[in-house]
Amino acid sequence: MQPFEYTANPGRVVFGSGSIKKLPDEIKRLNKSKPLLLSTPQQEEQVRALEPILKDASITPAGLFSEATMHTPTHITDKALAYTKECGADCVVSFGGGSTIGLGKAISIQTGLEHVCIPTTYAGSEMTPILGETAEGKKTTRSDPKILPGTVIYDVDFTMTLPEALSATSGVNAIAHAVEALYARANNPIMTLFALEGTKALAEALPIIVNHPHDTDARSKAQYGAWLCAMCLGSVGMALHHKLCHTLGGSFNLPHAETHTIVLPHAIAYNAPKIPEVMKQLAGLLPGSDGDAIKGLNVLLAKLKVKRGLQEFGMKEEDVDKAAEIAVSNPYWNPREIEKGPLRETIRRCWAGEDAKADL
């Protein structure tokens, strides 16, 4: 066995249907009493449902900030920070997906406030010490153990109304975390176990959810898988897939989960020649792969009925060259050397919505 290093990220997880009722106990466990509630505009009504749960336990929210948006733009964070100070909050409760949790992280790292997450998607940001922020059209990321939320409440009840399309893309986003962990430079046997189990759970659950969105068992399995996949993202470095998604999302304002969904099979195809063992492991987890992981990913995305082309989300063909330039301008580790020609063709295929092929 190869030598490795493993650092367990601290964090408390409360998992199960109805676990939202434990939110007051978790806030009291932190010796806090004035939480700031965070959400996107679309989830403001849902997050307000937390107020009576808190008030029944003699906890009055300091306020509600419902302007979280994708890619965590710094001007929104600045506005939220001013509101946090104004209302006198002593902790932050983020309710939603990656956009809201990202805002919670930004507030927490800048103020030192405790951060409790209630994820309603499968994106996984709640399990990572990573913060991605956008300023002037450019997205940058940083990692710091202090960014990691202290407590996460996984209540499947809040995922039951997640639209089928968003369930699919959010779940594939989670799979992307696990797949890249399998060949990450800092991989270790523990992360491999998490990655394989998480990918398997999601690959089984997501097709059921798309066709039977109120299947509680499938929803619970997907949330479990997303948690494990997110643990991978928070513990080992990522490579081409995530770097490319950050470039595309931050530079062209493309939706986060949908971009990850489109890019994943193409990024794996690009790296395939250098990760044969990972390709075997992945193929074994994907129904319909016939021993070919790339085929398995293409089959999975077809089952999930997701959009396959970045052009469907507003990216223009002339943006392909710009994206390639940005992606190669900031060198980073990847199992296969980043070559501009093949990378440009990879991005073009993502733009066009073609099936992935390992022929570059």
Rank of each mutant, 00 (worst) to 15 (best):
Glu5Thr: 14
Gly11Met: 11
Gly11Pro: 07
Arg12Leu: 13
Val13Phe: 05
Ser17Phe: 09
Ser17Thr: 08
Ser17Gln: 14
Lys22Val: 03
Lys22Pro: 00
Ile27Thr: 08
Arg29Met: 07
Lys32Thr: 07
Ser33Thr: 11
Leu37Thr: 05
Ser39Phe: 00
Ser39Asn: 00
Ser39Gln: 01
Glu44Cys: 02
Gln46His: 05
Gln46Pro: 03
Leu50Phe: 03
Leu50Tyr: 04
Glu51Val: 15
Pro52Cys: 10
Ile53Asp: 08
Ile53Phe: 07
Lys55Gly: 03
Ile59Lys: 04
Thr60Ile: 02
Thr69Asp: 00
His71Val: 06
Thr72Asp: 06
Thr72Asn: 08
His75Thr: 09
Lys79Gln: 08
Lys79Val: 05
Lys79Cys: 00
Ala82Gln: 02
Thr84His: 00
Glu86Ala: 03
Ala89His: 04
Phe95Gly: 00
Ala106Thr: 06
Ser108Asp: 08
Thr121Leu: 13
Ala123Asn: 01
Gly124Cys: 12
Gly124Val: 07
Ser125Lys: 04
Met127Pro: 11
Gly137Val: 02
Arg142Val: 14
Ser143Tyr: 09
Pro145Met: 09
Pro145Phe: 01
Pro145Trp: 03
Ile147Gly: 07
Ile147Gln: 07
Leu148Arg: 02
Gly150Thr: 06
Val152Ser: 02
Leu162Asn: 03
Leu162Phe: 06
Ala165Lys: 02
Ser170Ile: 07
Ile175Thr: 11
His177Trp: 01
His177Met: 13
His177Ile: 11
Glu180Ile: 15
Ala181Asp: 10
Ala195Asn: 07
Ala195Arg: 10
Ala195Gly: 09
Gly198Cys: 00
Gly198Thr: 08
Glu204Leu: 13
Ala205Gly: 06
Ala205Arg: 05
Leu206Gln: 00
Ile208Arg: 12
Val210Ala: 04
Asn211Leu: 09
Asn211His: 15
Pro213Asn: 04
Asp215Ile: 00
Asp217Phe: 03
Ala218Asp: 08
Ala218Pro: 05
Ser220Arg: 14
Ala226Tyr: 06
Ala226Trp: 09
Met231Leu: 15
Met231Val: 05
Met231Phe: 12
Ser235Ile: 03
Ser235Thr: 10
Gly237Ile: 07
Met238Asn: 12
Met238Gln: 14
Ala239Ser: 15
His241Thr: 14
His242Asn: 10
Leu244Arg: 06
Cys245Gly: 15
Thr247Tyr: 06
Pro255Phe: 07
His256Ser: 01
Ala257Pro: 01
Ala257Gln: 05
Thr261Trp: 08
Ile262His: 07
Val263Asn: 03
Val263Glu: 05
Leu264Arg: 03
Leu264Tyr: 12
Ile268Asp: 11
Ala269Pro: 03
Tyr270Thr: 03
Gln281Ser: 14
Ala283Gln: 08
Ala283His: 06
Gly284Asp: 13
Gly284Pro: 09
Pro287Gln: 14
Gly288Glu: 06
Ala293Phe: 14
Ile294Asp: 02
Gly296Cys: 12
Leu297Trp: 03
Leu300Val: 09
Leu301Asn: 13
Ala302Cys: 13
Leu304Glu: 01
Lys305Cys: 14
Val306Lys: 12
Val306Trp: 13
Gly309Lys: 04
Glu317Arg: 05
Ala324Glu: 00
Ala324Leu: 02
Ala324Pro: 02
Ile326Asn: 01
Asn334Gln: 04
Arg336Thr: 10
Glu337Ile: 12
Leu343His: 07
Glu345Met: 08
Arg348Val: 13
Ala356His: 08
Lys357Asn: 13
Ala358Glu: 12
Ala358Lys: 14
Asp359Tyr: 10
Asp359Pro: 12
Leu360Ile: 12
